[in-house]
Every structure is written in C-alpha cells, then in structure tokens.
Design a protein around this nucleic acid. Structure first.
Lengths: 342, 342
DNA sequence: ATAGCGAAAAGAAACGCTTCCAGATGGGTG
DNA sequence: CACCCATCTGGAAGCGTTTCTTTTCGCTAT
C-alpha cells in the first residue's frame, strides 16, 4: 500500500520515455513502437499505476466514465442488465457510475444540470418515464444519451418486445386444455417510471390466446406485487375459480416460482394439473424445470453500451432503436403431454 | 443552455477580482471582505457558474464527493437512510456517489483499490458483511470510512439496536392474551452481506416475551421473503395452528401490511382477534393504524454523515460507535383493550 | 556521402481549480 | 508625519493528465 499514488511522470521515468509517450500508450494511440509500448506497459504494471480519472477529465474533457441512471427495484433484471453493460465497458476500459432512482424526488435531483450524473462522458438511462418526465423529452446535457429498455425518438434506444413475449406465451399455453390465467404486477411502485412492461405482456398474452380462439376473462387476471408469495396467492385464488388443469402465464419468473411452490404444497401435479410459464429466463428457472420466456437482457445492455460508446467516439448519425425478442424455453412446467392434436 | 461552462476566470473577471478571491469565496475562506464576497457570489449567480469537481479534485486533492456503498435491496430502509445522508451532505455542499452492491461479484470489484469508490473524499459503507469480507477488516484506502447500520472496531460506526427493538415488541405484545407469533425474513439474499438484522429482532422478541414469562415456540416463527404477500401467507399459516387471538410481531412493516390485508380478507378484527406489530416505522403505517417499532433511520444516516465529514475535515480521534434505538408507536393494530390488568 | 522525409518521441502548454506568497491598502501609533 | 502591522487581494505555481508543436532518429533516394 503505497502512501502515494504513482503518476504518469514516474512511469515515464522508469520506462525511460517522455510523459507524452506514456499518455499515448494509455490512450492506445497508434504511433508508439510496439517495443516502447511494452516497456511502458511493464513500468505501469510494476508501479501499480492507474490513471487519475479526474485529471484525465480536466485535461482531455473525457473521464472514461459513463453514468447509468436506473430505477432500482433490485430485481435480477437490473443485475443482468448491468452485467451486459459492464462487460462492454470493461473491455473498453471505461468506468461506470450508477445513479439509482429510489424515489421521484431523487429523480428530480438527477435532472439538475450540475448533478454528478452529467459529469461523465455519456449516460445510459433505463427508465421509460424518466425520458418522458423531462421538458422537451431531452436531458440537459450535450453529451450522448442512450435509453435502455425504453424508447424515444430523440435518443438511441434498445428495448425488449414484451408484447411479443406475451403473444408467444399465449400461443404456447393456448394449445393446452383447461382454463387460462395470468399473473401481473401492480404498477404502483413503478408508475412514476411509466412502466408498461407487465401490461404489454398481458395484452400480448390475450392476443396469443386469440390465435387459438381462446380468450382471457378479466377475473382470470390476478394482480400481485413483485414477489414469489404473490404467485402462491394467485394459485390459491385461481383454485377458487376453476378446476384443474390451470394454465398460468406468470408475468415474471419470481411469480412463477411461487406458483410452483404452492402447487407442490397443494399436491397438484406440475405439467399436468398446473402448467406455468414464467418470464425473464432467470438462470435458476432451469433447475426448477420452469418454462419461461427468456429475455436476452445482457445482450440488450451490451448493445446499448456499444451504441453509447459509438456516440462518445463521435458518431453523429440519426438516432436508432434496436428491438430485442424474448424466446420460449420449454421445460417440465409446461410439458406438452399428448393432449393436443397437431 | 450555454455551450460553454463558465470558469473561475470568467467569474473573477466579471466580479473584478482575482481568481484567488473567487476560489476563496468558493471555499468559505474567512479572509474575504463581505462586500467582495457578495460581488463574487453575484457574479457566480449571473453566469450560472458551478465549480468543476474534477478540477477541484486534481488541484486540491478534494472532490467534495462522498461514496456510499450499500446493498440495494430497494427497501424503504435505504431510501430513508439516503434521505438522512443527503440532508447533511447538501448542507455542506457535498455530492454523493452511490455504489450499490447487487451481487457479490460486484462487491469484489468495489474492493479493488482503483475503483471509483475510492476516488472520493470518504466512504460511507452500509453492509455488515462488507466490512468483514475485507482482508484485515480494512478498506484499501487512506481516506476516512464510516460504517452505517454495521459495527466495526476500526472505523466509526452507527447502528440500530435491533435486538432492543425485538425486546420492546415482546414486552408490548406479551401483555396480551392469545398466542404469540413472529414473522422473520429469510436471509438468503443477504447472506453475503452478513445480515443478522432479522435474527436479532426475533431473539429480542423472545427475550421480551420472557419478561412476561411467555415463550415463543419454534413453530410460531414463520419465515418468509421480504414482501407483503409473505405476511398474508404467515397469517394463513398461523390460523392453521391456533385459535384467535393472534399476537404477531412482524419483522418488517411490509410483512405486517400483508397480515393486515389477510386479516381483513378473513374477516378477523384487527386489534382484537389479530394484533400485529411492525418494524421500521414507515410513514404509511400511520394511515393503516399499524403499530410499529419506529427506527430513526434518517437520524442514523445523518449522524454517520456528520462523523464522516468530521474525519474528512481532519479529525483524528479514536473510532467511536453510536447506537440508535427503535421506539414503539402504538396504534390501532395493537390497541390495548381492557384485557390486561395493570 | 547527404539531402529529404516520415515516423516516433520529448516536452511545453493547457485544462479549471487550490494554495501560497508577495504586494497593496488602511488604520493606528510614537 | 513616518512607520508598522494586520487584513485583503492578485496572481504564479502546481495538481495529473491530454494534446500540440518541436525535435530527433532512421531510412531511402540521390
């Protein structure tokens, strides 16, 4: 633990080059001889040097840091999104600064133009509502902004086609006999953020069922908070409405997990008496044999990051929107028994 | 929206002073005549000037930014904690940089010494486990660190006495007739963070009941995830074990809310057949008439921040620990009917 | 050999601030 | 009235980088 962080000068001295050369190595400037570059890299290693981002920012106007503004509902969704984002950023040696929105008052604070969020090279914003809450739908910054899991005309955006996911769910579950149900999440907490995620999934589900000439009665929609226990209550409720088999499209894997737990407790056979389909494609769904609509969340985060870096590097083209599609993973929880003709 | 952010030079020019004076005004240096100070302040106002934190950091070694490392389980607890912290920081014109730990891999990344988390003037760390996970229980930084809602010998810390809270719960509910129950939260998600919060509360509860010569049978402890629905399942479960009245100590207000919801659905009278006591003292408990153990969370955050700023300003004393106590708020949900003699 | 050229490297200037030192100002004193 | 001291103020130096200009070097073409 050196008391004193090594500077570019010490690296330069040790590698017997000028400070300019060290800087060029840091910034991957092409005109450094490979042999010189190696010497500098080695010196940096041996000194444990890492560049001071504040100095870089002052001198070059770039901090090699990107802001990520996101509502933290601490779901695995954001975990995985972050995973995808950090993957790309670390490859490019960028740092990430997180700005979680926990309340709307916090949101407002982030919109003030002197906020730290704007002191970085660019912003990734993951919140539909945030983009809309702003005057003129723009952020008070000249730096690039990319929206993740949200859509805007002004900025580049990447988003998940939740409605399609719902439709796939309807097509899949619609093939089975028995009643159709769905569990959705109350948008209460997220209303400030303008979520339509779960609504889109339910609407898509109804459409998908329609392709089988089946419909979704309003009382077959159970609204819950975002928790496994919500899924358990949902199954209890459905059981009071109809006889097995139950076909249940859960708006999230976590809800589906609750359904599985409760089915087991009730002694209902999963895959026959209770069929349940989740949404998200969480890693743990596999071990539970849970069918799910897998979302390429990491890929979405990665793509957003690539778009942002492209802008940071000076790309000026028109803003574009990239759509991602969920895909169906069929597992035991919706095993297609010989019931359907085909 | 000026393209160009005003600098200290422009402020100096407009106020007809030197840059040194402007800097002194910024840093509240005493030796500036009030009249000069006013002129400078006015110039800053009219230019919309705000100092560049990166430049301040490079020049003075201080960035007026504090890191907050915390596990984001997006509970209102952290919301309120942040509230208390930001209150103090904004008074002192400090900024805050948040480092939410969403997974343990992220945790490790934050421990690397070049991480952005260490580029600030000090750290507030809210995670028991984090402090212990470190080699030698120290963070790789020379800058001050203060622990919030955690305890350590090496650093200043402020913490909540959860066991006392449980004891208060036991003393209160123990006075009533009927069976005693508690709902606790599985520590699964938080095990990496070394939570003992909920365990402490349950242990305290048993102690408090002991003062009434009552005990807490293991099967009267329901373990749930952190959700309102968990409280509903808990009440269902308790009902299968015993007749009313039920006295329920919920480890969190959110769980207690579920109990209230389910009691209403079951047609059980709250305050007589079902008595429930929450923990946290969330603002919304009042409108629900929910008794709760109120935690001075904001005060705890504020105190931690004060300790940190004190260290940043150079205080070198021995590390201290400040304990905060929950207090009982009695509301309808545990209305003491004439049942008890006193 | 030598002029000429392009590539690579050195080092000065600049980024926006803090800090320090020297200079200016003004009032009190002998 | 000269002198001294305390109080304020101006601006140069410096923080750790990037970037631009200048210098150096190693070749090729004459």
């Amino acid at each position: 633990m050196a008391k004193h962080k090594p500077t570019i000068h010490e690296v330069a001295h040790l590698a017997r080059v000028g400070i300019g050369t060290v800087s060029r190595v840091l910034n991957n400037h092409p005109s450094v001889r490979p042999e010189t570059r190696a010497r500098v890299t080695e010196a940096m290693q041996s000194l444990g040097y890492s560049p001071n981002p504040h100095a870089r920012r002052v001198a070059g106007g770039r901090s090699y840091t990107v802001s990520l503004v996101l509502p933290v509902v601490a779901t695995e969704f954001y975990n995985r999104l972050l995973e995808g984002i950090e993957q790309i950023l670390s490859e490019e040696r960028y740092e990430i600064a997180l700005f979680p929105i926990l309340s709307s008052s916090r949101l407002e604070r982030y919109l003030e133009s002197h906020s730290l969020a704007y002191q970085t090279d660019g912003m990734l914003v993951s919140s539909q509502g945030l983009a809309h809450a702003l005057p003129g739908h723009r952020f008070p910054t000249e730096r690039p902004v990319v929206l993740v899991d949200a859509y805007s005309q002004r900025y580049d955006s990447v988003y998940m086609d939740n409605r399609l996911g719902g439709r796939l769910a309807g097509r899949h579950l619609g093939q089975f006999g028995g009643s159709q149900f769905t569990i959705t999440v109350e948008e209460d907490l997220d209303k400030a953020l303008g979520y339509t995620v779960f609504r889109d999934r339910v609407e898509g589900f109804a459409e998908g069922l329609g392709e089988h000439r089946k419909s979704l009665p309003p009382e077959h929609i159970f609204t819950s908070r975002f928790s496994a226990e919500g899924g358990r209550l949902a199954l209890q409720h459905f059981r009071s409405l109809a006889q097995p088999p139950y076909n249940i499209f859960a708006g999230a894997d976590l809800l589906a997990l609750g359904v599985l737990e409760e089915a087991e407790k009730m002694g209902l056979e999963v895959g026959r008496e209770v069929r349940v389909l989740g949404f998200d494609g969480q890693p743990w769904t596999e071990e539970h044999g849970l069918s799910t609509l897998s979302q390429p969340i990491e890929a979405m985060g990665a793509e957003a990051t690539r778009l942002l870096l492209e802008r940071i590097h000076g790309y000026k083209g028109l803003s574009k929107a990239v759509r991602f599609e969920p895909t169906l993973l069929e597992r035991r929880s919706t095993k297609p028994t010989k019931v359907y003709a085909d």
